[in-house]
Design a binder for these strands. Sequence first.
DNA 1: GGTACTCACCTTAGCTGC
DNA 2: GACCGCAGCTAAGGTGAG
Length: 424
Amino acid sequence: MTRTILHVDMDAFYVSVELRRRPDLVGQPVVVGGTGSRGVIAAASYEARRFGVFSAMPSATARRLCPHAVFLPGDHDLYGSVSAEVHEVFHSVTPFIEPLALDEAFLDVTGSVRLFGDGVAIAHRVRDLVWDRLQLRCSVGVAPNKFLAKLASKAAKPVARPDGVSPGPGVVEVRPGEELAFLHPLPVKALWGVGPATLERLTRFGVTTVGDLAQLDEATLVAAVGSAHGRHLHQLSWAIDDRPVEVDRETKSIGHEETFATDRHTHDELHRELVRLADAVAARLRAHGTGARTFQLKVRFAGFHTITRAVTVPAALQTAHGIVQALEPLLQAVDPSPGVRLLGVSASNFAESAEQLSMDDLLTGDGGVASATAGEWQAAEETMDAIRSRFGRSAIGPASAVTRDGLRVVRKGGQQWGPDEHPE
DNA sequence: GGTACTCACCTTAGCTGC
DNA sequence: GACCGCAGCTAAGGTGAG
């Protein structure tokens, strides 16, 4: 049975949300993202894109390319709440929604066609509703599968060129039977799963378009990019993509990482950052109602060289205290003297938490009696959750996170696009 | 020279138990 | 006891997405 899949992608989402409260900036080059020297761009208005500014670009580069642009710091919480409103619109046409990010989602509207008309009609309905209710623009791709719908929504977008911005068609449909005519002329890097590394490997085989890729036999492709990836790309090149729209995707890992405004050079400094990050990860694990057995430490040095070290513990943990205990030996094995610019903590291998009393809890390293047991840490951190839910995330936190300027608590998206210029 | 954050998935290699 | 094949787990790194 032919499916009807929509891919809805908000146009310059973060910037567009900002323009609703700053209408004076409409029509100007506006950029949202990290404001510090180590920040990156999250979104650029189409007027800014005319100057070559695009998302994920270092903020410093963007300032050089477009010095007269207005740079805004970004408000992750606001974008999250607007995104929820956008999703309400999606729910008015189908319950089968797979969010990909705050600003895009797949919708399986196969079962909605009898009610609302064909895929293109539903796409226009979504666009109109989003505009009427939220004063935001979006582009919609309509196709028989997810990856074609995604490519189609891209084709529906406005285009920024140095000489001006041209509005896109808003809705593009790839009809059944026309998949290969649409797909094969596209550059191979348009495919989902072809990033810089894969592109370079494919270029060595003379592959520049999706059509070229389709002509490559699967065994060659597998030899070039690996088995799973190779088979997947071969399928995509023939427009085959049976992946369903997944409504309830299970989270498999929870993590936080932070780039520092200035490099850290001592274990003492890194320990304090580890506690802050572990606190944030643990709070999210508890909110998620789970514990984790595998914890990963990520360290990026001043020269951008990055290492990861992981440990798997016998019983699942969900307290910052437990996570710090698990990761501290790994941190101690790292030499911070060259300078550390980023530290990350992530938790995976989810399992029901079983933090309970053990002999280690009762004894300290020097044979003395420990001041608190794992069970007491669990209770203390749950109390912290309760205080935070009532008075806000910054109401309470680990003592080592207190600075002269107050408590520095890690929040999801709180430093999404890099450190501010002078946060410490 | 500059390069964020979060998450998912893959590959390779080593180890362990059967 | 040594070795093999296999499965399962873990660790580390890489790639890609948005």
